[in-house]
Design a protein around this nucleic acid. Structure first.
Lengths: 222, 222
DNA sequence: TCCCGAGTTAAGGAACCCTTAAGGTCCCAA
DNA sequence: TTGGGACCTTAAGGGTTCCTTAACTCGGGA
């Protein structure tokens, strides 16, 4: 996990000040002063983005939209004290928090930390793990090739593993979470579900690894 | 167009004060002090909802979610000055604005007016989902071939699904929203309505998908 | 090699959903 | 007031999908 933070801020003085604040807090700021410069950057290279909505060139709002399309990185927006409508639009477009100018450095840092700590305020609509994509709203999962027709249990298992992608999740945890606890009988049931899930995953089945003696893990790459 | 405003506020003093403010501004406030009391109300009977997120009984957030499921009425949330995360969650769940406590009465009124003025982001008069078009004003639905003669319940179901097009909507949510909750009897009732709706949809019936174990979903394309 | 955890398959039964048909209610017009 | 129509609900049967179990196979680790 990187500690780099992308700072998009056209104001010279404010940008320098924020950069310094971020550095002192142990982050590694990357400061760009122009929306067009920020546009081609990959937001996933950063642990968070701090974005001033009042920008020349590409408008801040467009940048936000763009980043949201391709990534789930936390985005904080800087807004003028009284520009409520910008805050609202920003948040609805997926920003994670806002800081009102002028602000104390500690406040910004605290907000960033809060964003990094809290996984997300609202259940995110979609999650991608490698070539597997899950759309919670549609309640649908797909690989690069096709939409998967999963049963409720299979879908739940996939979601659980995806939410904790890269972590080994114990068999008990999965059984607890997605299977009817009453059927404490055969623990083998999970095997069956996993087996079928793998088959349906097709090419992507390699991402669903067995952690011997523990449980399973869904990896980003196979 | 009604000028009634639903105010959900448990605090006695604040509730009375806001009610009065609304009255003086020419609105007709309906003040309820409890989330559970507000729950069964139909938000479409009001021109706006003012909602305190800190509520006993049903949590304000749940109320907001519920209202958003069934209606597009503007919702303003009242929040404590420093509870940013509530504001953010509220806005992401579809609130249209927030007012921070304590506030000046004029501010609240101004915000309400702004919400009412602001043309909705979506064209609320009509919605199209794939080949299905719904005209709320005419209260009419049609496919590419023909105008559908739907019963009230069928129309409501279609509207609910169309408003959340692409999302899986649970059976309970649909029953809650469009069927008389008192008739908790047979859950099969919804099946019947869906069945008849599908038949009437004709060619477009493929867009109305069953999400097994969850509910239904209206897709853009079949 | 042996043991035990994990994978696979098939089959029975449970859960869920769709459809048809039969009341029941409400409203309107005769 | 009464008859009829439109609509909603309920009931019942049947179909589909899904979960579990059981039995067997596979494979890693001692």
């Amino acid at each position: 996990m990187t500690n780099r933070i992308l700072l998009v801020e056209d104001d010279e003085a404010l940008g320098r000040q924020v950069s310094e604040t971020l550095s002192q807090a142990g982050f590694e700021p990357h400061w760009v002063q122009d929306g067009d410069e920020a546009r081609p950057l990959n937001p996933d290279d950063y642990c968070a983005v701090v974005l001033d909505l009042m920008l020349p060139g590409t408008y801040g709002m467009d940048l936000l939209k763009r980043y949201r399309r391709v990534s789930e990185v936390p985005v904080l927006i800087l807004s003028a004290r009284d520009d409520t409508s910008d805050k609202i639009r920003g948040l609805k477009l997926g920003a994670d928090d806002y800081v009102t100018k002028p602000f104390f450095p500690e406040e910004l840092i605290a907000r960033i930390h809060a964003c990094l700590r809290r996984p997300n305020l609202v259940d995110t609509k979609r999650v991608a793990v490698g070539s597997v994509q899950i759309d919670f709203e549609r309640r649908e999962a797909r690989t690069e090739e096709e939409v998967l027709t999963l049963t409720p249990v299979e879908f739940e298992i996939l979601v659980l593993l995806a939410r904790r992608k890269g972590s080994a999740v114990s068999r008990d945890a999965i059984v607890d979470a997605v299977l009817d606890a009453a059927h404490e009988g055969s623990r083998r049931t999970l095997d069956v579900h996993i087996s079928r899930l793998r088959r349906k995953l097709g090419m992507a089945s390699g991402q669903l690894e067995t952690v011997w003696g523990i449980g399973y893990r869904l990896n980003d790459a196979s």
